[in-house]
Simulated scan of single mutants.
Amino acid sequence: MKFAVTGGAGFIGSHLIKYLIDEGHNVTAIDNLNTGKLNNLSKVIDRINFIRGDIRDTKLLQENLRGVDGVFHEAALASVQESFTKIQEYNEVNVQGTENILKTAKEYGFKVVYASSSSVYGNPTKIPIQEDDPKNPINPYAQTKLDDEKLAAKYAKEGVRVIGLRYFNVFGERQSQQYAGVIKKFLKKARNGEAPIINGDGTQTRDFVYVGDVVRANVLAMMSNVDHAFFNVGTATTITVNELADLIVGEFGLDIKPVHGPGLPGDVHTTKADITLAKKLLNWEPRVEIRDWLKQAISEKGNLDSIID
């Protein structure tokens, strides 16, 4: 089949492209290389059609998405802290850019699977979080993701097949500062024999989901008979930031304690996904557990370098 991946040179997009190529699909990657890196695609660059371009460019999308079977829309600005100071740019890229994809899907008839975010829930009213729970974004980035969901619902009513995947905290090789950046930061500090720096008291809980599991969720959603829905993509398990720091420090054999700094504005305290719906309708569930993955990554220098550098 023929697919396009926006944000294809990014963390999740590059893993998705590798999976699709290995499965024998024809892939076009679209990325403006603002945060994405061509090096992320080094193993497949000669087997894909790479377009350096921006999702805000409607003409570029029309020229390069005609004839595709589906679009995996991963392109976005994704820094919570940066979103407070660049509200307009975040709206232009995350909201207007997503509507450009949906408009093109309506014109050409392809299916869209796109990256939403667990941040749409804000600080949840109950745990674990279900898809129909209240949405209360507490930062501009999260608001753009909720605005995207409203657009997806609107275009679905107009016949567009669109599925939104609410990623929880994605981790893995080649991860960026934006996606589960705390893991990358802690690993860098520990590798240098330095104490991890925790924002806040460290009691924040996170549901970390492996990038390979996220890729499978995307592909299963695309291949499914589901035309429109939103799914949580997490693990239904949690770890506190304190526990994460202690685990990493311990695996490096260090006898140091984390340093605590002030909390960050817009930072959600507790996340934990209910993934019943994804299991039922997509036949998806996670396979990789954060603690096991970290222990293996730290023991294998080559793997560790691909995460930190």
Rank of each mutant, 00 (worst) to 15 (best):
D246W: 07
D246Q: 14
I197D: 10
I248R: 09
F230I: 04
G234V: 13
F252H: 00
N192T: 09
Y210T: 08
N218T: 12
T203S: 15
G234A: 14
V241M: 11
N232R: 07
Y210N: 12
V215F: 00
E251D: 05
F208Q: 00
G200K: 08
P196V: 05
V233E: 03
T237A: 01
V215C: 00
L244H: 10
T237M: 07
R216G: 08
G253I: 05
V241K: 06
V219N: 03
D207K: 00
V226W: 00
V259R: 03
F208E: 08
Q204D: 12
L244Q: 10
I197A: 09
A229N: 15
V214W: 08
I248H: 01
R206T: 12
A195D: 01
L220T: 09
A245K: 04
G250C: 06
F252E: 04
V249C: 03
D201R: 06
V259L: 11
G253M: 10
G193T: 04
H228R: 13
G193S: 11
V209W: 10
S224T: 11
T205N: 13
H228I: 09
T205M: 06
G200R: 03
V209G: 05
M223G: 14
A229R: 14
L254W: 05
I198M: 11
L220S: 12
T235P: 02
L220Y: 02
V211L: 05
I248N: 01
N242G: 02
T237F: 05
G193N: 07
V241Y: 13
Q204T: 01
F230Y: 15
M223D: 14
L254G: 10
V209F: 01
I197P: 13
N199V: 03
D213M: 07
A217S: 04
P258N: 09
E243K: 15
T238L: 00
I197Y: 00
D201E: 04
V259F: 00
N218A: 13
N242Y: 07
R216W: 12
G250D: 08
R206H: 07
D201N: 15
M223Q: 14
F252A: 10
E243Y: 09
I248F: 13
V249Y: 11
D201G: 02
M222H: 02
V211E: 08
A221M: 07
G193A: 04
A236S: 15
V219S: 07
F208C: 10
D207R: 09
V211S: 11
E194W: 03
P258C: 11
V211M: 06
K257T: 14
A221E: 10
S224P: 08
K257N: 13
V259G: 07
N192R: 13
E251P: 10
I198W: 03
A236Y: 03
G253R: 05
V249D: 04
R206C: 12
I256T: 08
V233K: 01
K257L: 12
M223H: 12
E251H: 05
T240F: 07
D201H: 09
G250A: 10
L254P: 00
A236N: 15
